[in-house]
Design a protein around this nucleic acid. Structure first.
Length: 413
RNA sequence: GUGAGUGUAGCUCAAGGGUAGAGCGCCGGUCUGUGGCACCGGAUGCUGGGGGUUCGAAUCCCCUCACUCACCCCA
């Protein structure tokens, strides 16, 4: 046997129904908020992510499936969707053709990481992006929609966390304040934190090392360093959320890993997932469209991890069961059985037939195992009278029905 | 990339140097054209893979692969 590639998974029948449920809810919710689907390729030029996601991020530095193709082009399997969505938005001038560029996409992403629960090398996301709207009302609507999505899936124990990381105006000031506050304590922090202090000081807030916490708890908060514009924007976002009666927790430690985030950031956490507990995360990225060669347009969006949503989904697996099982008894009845099955399917009934000439007992057993509602027994005896026998599996009750009336009888039941 | 744990039948798990097992599931019979319940019978494993120690390895040792948890990262 040749095993599947590490970090990839098959979604088998019995599991796939849960995925379909998540995807159906995603499409339904997106549709109600006015989003249109945009499907972009899984491979993109490597530079799209170096520029978009950010050259300093771990994703770009060590997690991309990047290679040189046969034409000498540097390409990569996409590690996230947003830069591709922005590229397509710009490339097709979607702002001209769509009333409001509200876009969503569902598909696989690839990151070369050590797999663990809730984290895979090929994983799937729902991505939601809106371009060209700077108003805080949209931030709140996007966040509220994300919450509605999770609630509609009946996922328990989800918590919304929000923060503001400022903009290119006020963030440098905050980073400086951070380093200044750290001062002589910096060498006391863990190695990772010291590295973060040099590359992206905000990410010190991500640290989970226990010994570092007393120091980190004393650090200033980004919300206290926002410029007037960012502060008013963030206050407005919170006002709208309260108006929606959407509970949220402010966390000055929510900083997010991608370089492009500005102002509002948010996550929905699920308590039952363990270490990989973010169901969904996103924020505003006002400089990204311009950076990727488009006009100066603001943007906001989020990505939801489908594996994690499926993991957090409450138990009940929806069983897939046929309406009818057609059992053919006797060599002469088989042809009639297949013709009948075709007619039942044409009328919309999910129908199975046995392909082996098994005993009546064996076929009934199969019908039972498949959880068919009805078994239609097509036998030589019945056919001679122009009839078939319909058995209701739940009750065991059965009756003879004219062969040409069985489709009508079953499709109305 | 780092650390720890676990890999035995389709699934959940026993056997800790001496002939690989159970429960569930699957197939068949009792019931020759009638499922579920009961009873009876049957099939299924290169014990993740490779190497070593030993008269003999699922069991001990080494390597490798995969999975799980945590770090890291993030959806």
């Amino acid at each position: 046997m040749i095993p599947g590639v590490r970090g990839t998974r098959d979604i088998v029948p019995g599991d796939v129904e849960r995925w379909q449920r998540v995807e159906a809810v995603a499409r339904d919710v997106c549709g109600r908020y006015g989003y249109r689907e945009l499907r972009t390729p899984i491979i993109e030029r490597e530079e799209l992510f170096a520029k978009g996601t950010g050259a300093s991020t771990d994703i770009v530095q060590k997690e991309m499936y990047a290679f040189t193709d046969k034409g000498g082009e540097r390409v990569t399997l996409r590690p996230e969707a947003t830069p591709g969505m922005v590229r397509a938005f710009v490339e097709h001038a979607l702002e001209q053709s769509l009333p409001v560029p509200k876009l969503f996409t569902i598909g696989p992403m690839f990151r070369y990481e050590r797999p663990q629960k809730g984290r895979y090398r090929q994983f799937h996301q729902l991505n939601v992006e809106v371009f060209g709207v700077a108003d805080a009302a949209l931030d709140a609507e996007v966040i509220e929609m994300a919450c509605t999505f999770v609630e509609t899936l009946a996922i328990q124990g989800a918590e919304l966390v929000i923060n503001s990381v400022g903009c290119p105006e006020c963030r440098p000031e905050f980073s400086e304040a951070l380093l200044k506050a750290l001062g002589e304590d910096l060498p006391k922090l863990c190695g990772d934190c010291q590295r973060r202090a040099a590359t992206n000081p905000l990410r010190i807030f991500d640290c989970k090392v226990a010994a570092d916490q007393p120091i980190i708890d004393q650090l200033p908060h980004s919300v206290d360093y926002l410029c007037d514009g960012c502060r008013e924007h963030f206050e407005a976002v919170q006002r709208y959320l309260r108006a929606y009666e959407q509970p949220f927790r402010l966390s000055h430690r929510l900083v997010r890993g991608l370089d492009y985030y500005t102002r509002t950031t948010f996550e929905i956490l699920a308590s039952q997932l363990g270490a990989q507990n973010a169901l969904l995360g996103g924020g505003r990225y006002d400089g990204l469209v311009k950076k990727l060669g488009g006009a100066d347009r603001p943007g906001i969006g989020f990505a939801a991890g489908l594996e994690r949503l499926v993991l957090a989904l409450p138990g009940t697996d929806d069983e897939v069961a046929p309406d009818v099982f057609v059992a053919a008894l006797g060599e002469g009845a088989r042809e009639a059985a297949f013709v009948l099955a075709r007619a039942l399917r044409a009328s919309g009934l999910q129908t199975l037939v046995d392909y082996e000439p098994r005993s009546a007992k064996a076929q009934l057993k199969r019908a039972n195992r498949a959880r068919a509602r009805y078994t239609v027994i097509v036998g030589d005896d019945e056919l001679a009278r122009g009839e078939v026998t319909v058995k209701t599996m739940a009750t065991g009750e059965q009756q003879s029905i004219a062969r040409d009336g069985v489709v009508a009888a079953l499709s109305s039941s």
